[in-house]
């Protein structure tokens, strides 16, 4: 079963959003265009549209998250859906209820969409594969595998600043090995036709055969950043120091931290992005994070619109207009 078949219906429309891989470029563009139309909504004083009124969306987070969960929650509320937040402590699943039990129980409560985050790669696929036909699954991050809504909001940010993706040089710096964000960004950039995607990291933070993802691999930040139009800095988890992957944050910053000085090597109009939350002085200098090139807060802003777009596109096909439903019934009788 391919991810593409699982994610789209027979008409090629979005059914689940699990990964960027296997989707058509047109679908990514549709998500971004829809998000653009929602940007207006969220800037109004009444920030709601009735698209998903009467629908129930469950934020099912098996991994701690504040930012992503909050933006999904806001997105759902602005679409007028009812939202249920369930933070499942890892210990609760140890008690014996399997993920499938959790899924079945929530389905029995007539929930329409699951937004799932879990530490195991493949969890969103697992939910999608076993969900009832009327249920949509949105991946809010699974292990090291994918975080497609984050990638899409990053693409929207890039598109709004750069107009398009042709000829763009995009560099992703940091812990590629453990990053679901990087995997999804790389897929999306390649699908949207970015000129060149580069990654910069020491060998310990790169997956084996990283080039098979469709990137040029650099180990030297100054070489990798040269003439880049977009610089994406990844968050460095503190636990990487414990796993013998890095000696110290100090050395990491010295070699891979983005400073104002290094930024001058990039293209003059380069933008600096970060999926957040940022570690000032570890992967990025405050001067850069808060500087003129930084679009980090814009990313957060677009995050809500992108999640509204994904939710409404994934659910829309299951909200047939009343006339259409009646017409269908007549056809069946006739």
């Amino acid at each position: 079963m391919s991810g593409a078949n699982l994610q789209v219906d027979e008409n090629g429309r979005l059914r689940h959003f699990l990964t960027v891989e296997g989707l058509h470029r047109g679908l990514l563009v549709e998500i971004m265009d829809t998000a653009e139309s929602f940007l207006g909504v969220v800037e109004q004083s009444v920030k709601k549209v009735p698209l998903l009124r009467g629908k129930t969306i469950v934020n099912l987070f098996f991994e701690a998250s504040t930012r992503t969960r909050t933006t999904f929650e806001l997105a759902a509320k602005r679409l007028s859906a009812d939202v249920l937040n369930i933070n499942v402590d890892a210990s609760a699943t140890v008690k014996g209820e399997t993920l499938l039990d959790t899924l079945r129980n929530l389905e029995a409560m007539h929930c329409d969409m699951f937004v799932v985050r879990h530490a195991d790669s493949g969890t969103a696929h697992f939910f999608a594969r076993h969900a009832a036909p009327h249920v949509s699954v949105i991946n809010a991050g699974d292990g090291r595998h994918a975080h497609p809504t984050q990638a899409l909001l990053d693409m929207l940010t890039i598109r709004r600043h750069k107009g398009g993706f042709d000829r763009l040089r995009v560099v992703i710096v940091g812990d590629i090995l453990h990053s679901r964000v990087a995997r999804s960004q790389i897929r999306a950039l390649n699908l949207l036709g970015a000129g060149e995607v580069r990654v910069v990291a020491p060998h310990t933070l790169l997956p084996v055969r990283a080039e098979t993802l469709g990137v040029r691999v650099f180990h030297d930040l100054e070489a990798g950043i040269r003439d880049a139009d977009v610089i994406i800095m990844l968050r460095l988890q503190h636990e990487r120091m414990r796993g013998a992957l890095l000696p110290s944050e100090h050395e990491y910053f010295r070699l891979f931290g983005l400073t104002a000085e290094r930024l001058t090597l990039a293209a003059p109009e380069a933008i600096v992005m970060h999926p957040g939350p940022i570690n000032r002085g570890v992967e990025i200098d405050s001067q850069v994070a808060d500087g003129a090139h930084s679009v980090i807060l814009e990313q957060v802003h677009y995050g809500i619109a992108v999640r509204m777009a994904v939710m409404s596109l994934a659910m829309h096909r299951r909200i047939p207009a009343p006339e259409a439903r009646e017409a269908g019934a007549e056809r069946e009788i006739g």
């Binding site: 790669s121 699974d142 090291r144 595998h145 995997r183 997956p207 084996v208 055969r209 098979t212």
Partner: peptide, 15 residues
């Protein structure tokens, strides 16, 4: 296996 598939799917690999 720690190879191209592990890299693509983000699954922890066994070298």
């Amino acid at each position: 296996h720690e190879g191209a598939l592990a890299t693509r799917l983000g699954l922890p690999g066994i070298p």
